[in-house]
Design a protein around this nucleic acid. Sequence first.
RNA 1: AGCGAGGUAGGGUAGCCAGGAGUGCCCGCCGGGCUCAUAACCCGGAGAUCGGUGGUUCAAAUCCACCCCUCGCUACCA
Length: 491
Amino acid sequence: MAKYYITTPIYYITDKPHIGTAYTTVISDIIARWHRLCGDDVFFLTGTDEHGEKVQKASERAGMQPKEFADTMASKFSSAWKEYNITNDAFIRTTDRQHESIVAEFIKKLYDAGDIYKGEYEGWYCTPDETFLTELQLKDGKCPECGREVKKVKEESYFFRLSKYQDKLLELYDKNPLFISPKFRSGEIINRVKGGLKDISVTRTTIKWGITFPEDSNHTIYVWVDALVNYISALQWPDGGNMRFWPADAHIIGKEIAWFHTVIWPAMLFSAGIDAPKKIFSHGWWTVEGRKMSKSLGNMVDPIELKNKYGVDAIRYYFAREMPFGDDSDFSEKNLIARINGELVDDLGNLVYRSLTLAERFNGRIKGAPELDKGLDVEHIKTLMTNLDTFNAIEEIWSQVRRTNKYINEKQAWKLNGEELGSVIYNILESIRIISVLIGPFMPETAEKIRAQLGVDKQDISHCKFSDFNGRIKKEGHLFNKIEKTQGMNA
RNA sequence: AGCGAGGUAGGGUAGCCAGGAGUGCCCGCCGGGCUCAUAACCCGGAGAUCGGUGGUUCAAAUCCACCCCUCGCUACCA
């Protein structure tokens, strides 16, 4: 049995869950469920990032202690994921005491390796935005975000010798072409690494809400270092039992944090003498109704509202189906409704309903030779899923849904009887049974409903081939209901 | 500015790396079939100067050059 370790980023708790974080988490869950379906020993991690200046400020505004504020926000995430049927094996919080002590131990290891030295951080700071900026980022000497004046700040800081690992990183990319996925994003990173790496500041003296740097208690560890270590602290590094899951098979992230995961994180691991993860997959971003999603535009989509309105499985399906492998996509309610009505209600729901009507009326033996197995390529779907390509995997599954609908029409099943009908029904039900297994990771509730109506046992990937049909038909209702146009959120 | 990604019928995508008739898929539109099914499903059709210009070639959506447009990243902003 192969092990499979998959992670989401840990989400920064100044925001509540939105469509982007929900997307990352759902996609990761689909992959995790897929691997379980394939019999792998899976560890699936998500969690929250709770230190840093912004959290400190946000908690002050909320009139709470940072830890109290963090507790409130973290539970918003864990309860949202519960509602989305997320099957994470652990939920890590960077304020967990175990995490804090492991981060301290980890950074000490880098220190002992001679990769941490004391220096002086110098840069620009935009006070109203509370943001540190580099020379390059400034626009006409002012803050690129708000256009206001910035001031020069100088502060004692400890640095990590990132520059030392340039060659080792390039070697990593070279030996593992899929390390930075999808491939079209790797050039960007590799060129920048080739262009040279600067050491990075890893501690702060001005921020109190963080983990104390063990070598100098005037400093706290910078949030990014703290956050990245979650991937191993959740496994109880260095010698906890779950370390057998390391190296991670896939870190699923948004493209905006690719640099940290593909450059800084492996470099820190090298310094600590730990293997690099196998793959960093950065997915695209959602725009909302054609516009960038942002708080100031007020177009943040609340995943809980969305789910309450359309159903968990519909949203999970939409996430996996709408956004092509790694690309950006537009979220639009019109489009979501079109997919629910066209693909879930008309294609899949209707297929199951009409098939069960035929099967229920038939009282002969459901038996025959496989005909509908042609064209269904489970191995290909496996390959796509291994490559995290949920978009094309669904396309492939749906072609079988369409093929089955077509088969019913071509055979004119409603006109047949006797053995001939028994054979056609056999093919239809076997096809639906296999479809239900394949869609399980995407739409677990729907898969379960189909399975119950077919009256078959729980199955895994090895059952995705035509064999004898052994179910006991029990037709219930429709799997999905049509969304009327007037029901749209903004309609 | 530098680096990167993309511009294919009304919309969305695949094809490009390894050139060979504009070929595929989904939605929408028009017409037909069927009645097991949630106005569903199935079949057929219309619709594209493949962003522009120039080049290589017997042959370019595909290779090369230049240009236009959109988007992302640019390191300590989760």
